[in-house]
Write a protein that binds this DNA or RNA. Structure first.
Lengths: 220, 220
DNA sequence: GTCTATATTGAGATAGAC
DNA sequence: GTCTATCTCAATATAGAC
C-alpha cells in the first residue's frame, strides 16, 4: 500500500467516515476560521489543515477560496428562500403566518449561526477582499414577506388600519434584535420563545386598554 | 519650544485656522479612514495626510493611533451618558420619556454616524488589533434605561401589565433597526419621524381592537 | 538619507501520479 | 478523490549604489 493510498483511506473511508464528510468538514473549518480571523486573514492552508485534508481537496470540491465562501452563503440562503415561499402560502391568519415565518427564520438562523457571524463580519466589517454577496437582497426579501402578510392582515380586518410599513419595521426590529442578541450574547439570548413573546407584544401593543396611541389620539 | 509643540502651533494659527480645527480635522480623517479601510488597514501616515498636518501633530493631541481611536469612541458615548441621566429624570409620562429618550439617542447616532460605522465595523468585524472598548456596556445601559421607563409605565397604569423585558426588547428592536437601516441604506432610512411612528405602533399594537393578543387571549 | 534593484517570503492555485 | 510537488504572483525586506 502506497503512502498516498494509506493517507486517503485513513482520512475518510478507512475510518468509517462517509465520503461526504470531507466536504462538510471543509465548510465547518472555513466557517470557524472566517469567524475568528476574517476572510482575508484566513488562508487556504489553515482551512485544509483544520479539516485534516490537503489543499487540492478544497480545490476539488470548491473552485477556490471564493468558492467555499460563496457556498457557505448560498447554503444558508437557499433554505431561507424555500421558507419564504412556504410561509406565504401556508394556511392560517396573518398573525399566525407572521409568527410562523419569523420563528422558522429564527430557527434557520440559529442552525447556521456560525455562517451568520461570518455574514455580519463581512457586511459590517472592513473590506476584506471577499467576493460580493447581496446580503441586502435577502434582508429586503425578508422584509417584503412580512410586509405582504401585514397588508393581508390589514385587508381582512385582523390588524388595525395603519401604516403597513411602520408595522413591518416593528416586526423586523424584533426579529433583528433577537438574532443579534443571540449572536453577541447567546447566554442572555431571547431564544425562539422569547422572540414569540416579543412579537406578541407588538401585536397587542404596550399601552393599557383605552390608551392606544400616545399623541395623535389613536389611528393616523 | 519642543518639536511637537511647534508643529501643533504652526499648522493651525499660522493659516488663520482656529486651533481646535486641527484636532477636529484629525478626528474626522481618522473616522473616514477607519470606516473605509478598517482600523488595522489605516496608517497614521494616511490620517495625518488626510488632515493636512504632520505626524507629530497627531502624537501631540492624541498619544498614538490607539489614542485617537479611543477618543472617537469616548466622545460619542460621553454625550450618550448625559442623555441617559437627563431622560430618566425628565418630566412627562413614561411613553413621552421613552419617545424622547429614543429620539435623542437616534439624533446623537445620526450626528455621529461616521463613528457609529467604525463601531459596527470593530464590533462585528474580524479582529483588527484595535484596543478594547466596552460597546456592550453601552448597549446594556441603553436597554436598562428603557426597561426602567417601561416598568415605571406599568406601575402607574400607563402600560398594560405584562413582561417589562419583552416590551423593552420590542422598543430596543425598533430603535436598533432604525439605526441600522440608516447605517446601511440612508436613502430609505426611517429617520427620526419614522422611528417615532414605529414606536407609536409598538405602544398601540398592531392587532385590531378587541383582538389583542394572538394566542393567549390577551394578557399573560 | 533616499532610491532602486534584487532577494525572500508566503499567499492562492495547479499538474500529474496513484 | 486524494496525494506530492511545483508554479505564479504580489508584498515585503534588504542591499548596495548614488
Amino acid at each position: 500500500m502506497g503512502k498516498a493510498e494509506a493517507a486517503a483511506a485513513g482520512s475518510g473511508r478507512g475510518a468509517g467516515t462517509p465520503d461526504g464528510a470531507v466536504r462538510e468538514r471543509l465548510l465547518k473549518s472555513a466557517t470557524d476560521l472566517f469567524t475568528r480571523k476574517g476572510y482575508a486573514g484566513t488562508t487556504v492552508r489553515e482551512i485544509v489543515a483544520a479539516a485534516k485534508v490537503t489543499k487540492p481537496v478544497l480545490y476539488y470540491y470548491f473552485r477556490n477560496k471564493e468558492g467555499i465562501y460563496l457556498e457557505l452563503m448560498k447554503e444558508g440562503f437557499s433554505r431561507f428562500d424555500s421558507l419564504v415561499g412556504a410561509s406565504l402560502e401556508a394556511p392560517g391568519s396573518a398573525a399566525e403566518k407572521i409568527l410562523r415565518f419569523c420563528a422558522r427564520s429564527f430557527e434557520l438562523f440559529l442552525d447556521r449561526i456560525g455562517v451568520a457571524r461570518v455574514m455580519y463580519s463581512i457586511y459590517y466589517g472592513p473590506p476584506q477582499g471577499a467576493p460580493f454577496f447581496d446580503f441586502d437582497a435577502y434582508h429586503f426579501k425578508f422584509q417584503e414577506a412580512i410586509r405582504r402578510l401585514v397588508e393581508e392582515g390589514i385587508r381582512n380586518g385582523e390588524f388595525r388600519k395603519g401604516d403597513a410599513g411602520d408595522m413591518t419595521w416593528a416586526i423586523v426590529g424584533a426579529v433583528n434584535v433577537a438574532m443579534e442578541i443571540q449572536l453577541c450574547h447567546p447566554e442572555v439570548g431571547l431564544g425562539k420563545e422569547g422572540l414569540d413573546r416579543v412579537l406578541d407584544v407588538i401585536f397587542a401593543g404596550i399601552a393599557a386598554e383605552g390608551r392606544k396611541g400616545t399623541r395623535k389620539g389613536g389611528r393616523r
